[in-house]
């Protein structure tokens, strides 16, 4: 009970009057976004599995050379949404994406778009470290080899350096990746994604299986990587979003009248600082302050 007593109530009170679900147009970009280059433009995107919507009517823009965080409680569709960005949802039978999803102005779901080409440019790191049961070198070299790139060794070294893993593994590149610690495995997965020179890296809860020290390393990495790449991260760890991201989208679960089906909705999207200090929506405030969720 004592937990909330010292918390200032003013912001929440100020926002308490409003409960509209729809995202106001100005939230779609967040403030001060005019000068930044748009990477993704997501317009009224709804994703369904076997006809059941998982996220409904999401609109937001994601910018180049930024870390964009998607936060929200379990089941709010954060992972579903991020998986649309490199068409990983295509691999799930019965998944259907409607709305418009532009990547550098091109329709990601256009009739002539090849998901394999999309994924070459938009890499992904997953919740559980999933290195291949091969050597460290072969892991990092997998993408370049599959894509028939040249200078494999240079690419591997560069990627491992980028992922701040080189010094730890340079003397044991032929060792199996499963002999590494969980945090190293996850950094190897990041290196593996970097080795094909992607444009964007999607990270779906990349630290949820890691301890705080390994998490810290990956967070530092994200901040340096955004100089060269754009990063979208899904996290259920609000502190992590606050630490690493430039912009944060807060999604919430919405139930239908019968409470039988549920889906995710975007509640608020803005600069991270604003989301965490002065959110416009009371539900964001409740969530980031730890009151719900």
């Amino acid at each position: 009970m004592a937990r909330h007593e010292n918390r200032p109530e003013t912001a929440r009170e100020a926002a308490a009057g409003r409960a509209s679900i729809a995202v106001r147009p100005e939230f779609r970009q967040g403030a001060n976004a005019g000068a930044k280059e748009k990477m993704f433009e997501i317009e009224n995107v709804t994703v369904s599995y076997d006809g059941q919507p998982a996220v409904k009517d999401i609109s937001l823009d994601i910018f180049k050379n930024e870390v964009t965080a998607l936060i929200g409680p379990s089941g709010c569709g954060k992972s579903t949404l991020i998986r649309c960005l490199n068409r990983m949802n295509d691999l799930i039978l019965g998944a259907e994406v409607s709305g418009r999803l532009l990547y550098h102005g091109q329709d990601l779901y256009g009739p002539k778009v090849d998901p394999v080409q999309v994924r070459k440019m938009i890499g992904m790191v997953f919740q559980k470290p999933n290195p291949f049961p091969k050597s460290i070198f072969d892991n990092a070299a997998f993408g370049p080899r599959v894509l028939r790139m040249k200078d494999i060794e240079e690419r591997v070294e560069k990627a491992l350096r980028c992922a701040v893993l080189w010094d730890e593994v340079k003397d044991r590149l032929d060792q199996n990746a499963y002999e590494m610690s969980g945090g190293q495995q996850q950094r190897l997965c990041i290196a593996r994604a970097l080795a094909v020179d992607p444009d964007v890296i999607l990270m779906d809860e990349p630290c949820s299986a890691l301890d705080p020290i390994a998490t810290g390393k990956i967070e530092d990495l994200m901040v340096t990587l955004k100089e060269e790449f754009s990063i979208v991260i899904v996290t259920h760890n609000m502190q992590q979003a606050a630490r690493v991201s430039d912009r944060t989208a807060f999604l919430m679960v919405e139930l239908d009248a019968t409470e039988r089906s549920r889906w995710g909705r975007l509640v608020e999207y803005d600069e991270t600082e604003k989301i965490f200090t002065n959110p416009a929506d009371s539900r964001t405030e409740d969530y980031v302050s730890g009151k719900v969720g």
Binding site: L91, F126, K128, N130, F132, P133, G143, V146
Partner: peptide
């Protein structure tokens, strides 16, 4: 073979055949 390995390969731009022959089959 864990689905995560397939996803990892797909996310690197591997085709279905490459995923089958280079990841799933060796594993």
């Amino acid at each position: 073979v864990p689905g995560g390995l397939r996803e990892a390969a797909y996310a690197l731009g591997a085709t279905r055949m490459k995923v089958a022959t280079r990841v799933v089959f060796p594993a």
